[in-house]
Deep mutational scan, measured.
Amino acid sequence: GLEHMADEEKLPPGWEKRMSRSSGRVYYFNHITNASQWERPSG
């Protein structure tokens, strides 16, 4: 619920959580730099 939404908002600017269609794993994508990574971004 609300706790999940608050957790999402802690991601650094530009980052969003996405799911890989090929593997079904969650990864993180930065739409500003077009960077993507499996680890949760910090800072």
Rank of each mutant, 00 (worst) to 15 (best):
L2F: 13
A35R: 14
R18T: 03
F29M: 02
R18P: 00
P41V: 02
A6G: 11
M19P: 03
S42K: 09
R21E: 13
N30G: 00
M19D: 03
V26A: 07
Y28A: 00
E8Y: 03
T33A: 03
S23K: 09
M5S: 11
M5K: 11
A35M: 15
E8M: 06
P41E: 01
A35N: 09
M19E: 09
G43P: 10
Q37M: 06
I32K: 06
S22F: 09
W38H: 06
H31W: 14
P41T: 01
A6P: 13
P41L: 02
G43F: 15
D7I: 11
K10R: 12
L11Q: 07
N30K: 00
L2Y: 14
A6S: 13
N34F: 08
P13L: 08
R18Y: 05
I32N: 07
R21T: 12
F29L: 02
A35I: 15
A6R: 11
T33G: 02
A35P: 01
W38S: 06
E39W: 07
Q37E: 02
R18K: 09
L2G: 13
G43V: 12
M5Q: 12
T33S: 06
E16S: 07
E9K: 06
V26Q: 05
W15H: 00
N30C: 02
H4T: 13
M19A: 06
T33E: 05
G14K: 01
Q37I: 04
H4D: 15
M19Q: 10
K10H: 12
N34P: 00
R40L: 07
G43M: 14
S23N: 12
Q37W: 03
D7H: 09
H4A: 13
M5E: 11
S22R: 14
A35K: 15
Y27S: 03
E39A: 05
F29N: 00
E9D: 13
N34C: 15
R21Y: 06
S22P: 10
N30L: 01
M5V: 13
S36Y: 14
R40Q: 07
N30Y: 04
S22A: 12
R40D: 05
G24D: 07
K17G: 02
Y27M: 02
E16T: 08
Y28E: 00
I32T: 07
A35Y: 08
R21G: 10
E39K: 04
S22L: 09
G24K: 08
R25F: 05
P13K: 06
Y27K: 01
T33L: 06
P13S: 07
L11V: 04
R40P: 09
E8H: 09
T33D: 04
R21L: 13
S22V: 14
H31T: 15
G24T: 03
R40E: 06
S36P: 03
H31L: 14
L2K: 14
G14N: 06
S36M: 15
K17D: 01
R18V: 06
Y28W: 05
Q37Y: 04
F29P: 01
Y27V: 03
M19R: 13
L11H: 01
M5H: 13
S23Y: 05
F29D: 02
E9Q: 08
L11I: 04
R18A: 03
E3D: 13
E8R: 07
H4G: 12
E16L: 06
G43S: 14
E9I: 07
E8K: 08
H4F: 12
H31Y: 14
W15T: 00
R21A: 14
Q37K: 04
E3Y: 01
K10Q: 14
D7Q: 10
K17R: 11
S42R: 09
Y27L: 02
E16F: 05
E9H: 07
S23W: 04
R18D: 00
S22E: 10
W38Y: 10
A6K: 10
Q37C: 06
N30M: 02
E9F: 06
K17L: 08
P13F: 10
V26L: 07
Y28F: 05
G1S: 11
K10W: 15
E8Q: 10
P12N: 01
S42T: 13
V26Y: 12
S42F: 10
E16M: 05
P12Y: 02
A35V: 15
V26F: 11
F29G: 01
V26T: 09
W15F: 01
G1T: 10
L11T: 02
S36Q: 09
G24E: 05
Q37D: 02
E39T: 06
M19C: 15
M5P: 10
S23L: 11
